[in-house]
Amino acid sequence: MAIERIDFDLCDGCWVCVESCPADVLRMAQVGEAWESMGWKAIIAYPQECHGCKLCVQDCHVDAITVSQRVPLPKPFQPHVGLIFYEPRTH
């Protein structure tokens, strides 16, 4: 359904995923404790807008990103029809 996690131990702050996300879900930010900065890492700024296209996963050169393509079947308006009616992606 969405991007789940960016592993800060692997992320080297290269910006590629932030630039390549078509839905503009990611940003760069300073992460870490007050006295132990880990530096700039990619963070998930708009998780609810991710539609699981996995372009960031394909572009990340250190495999730091976990995305699930799972899209749970929404409650259809008429179950016997067996047709999905969408729920909007942004919440």
Partner: peptide, 11 residues
């Protein structure tokens, strides 16, 4: 296109 989970293309 609308913005939905079932479409790959955004924007």
């Amino acid at each position: 296109y609308p913005k939905i989970h079932f479409s790959y293309i955004d924007g």
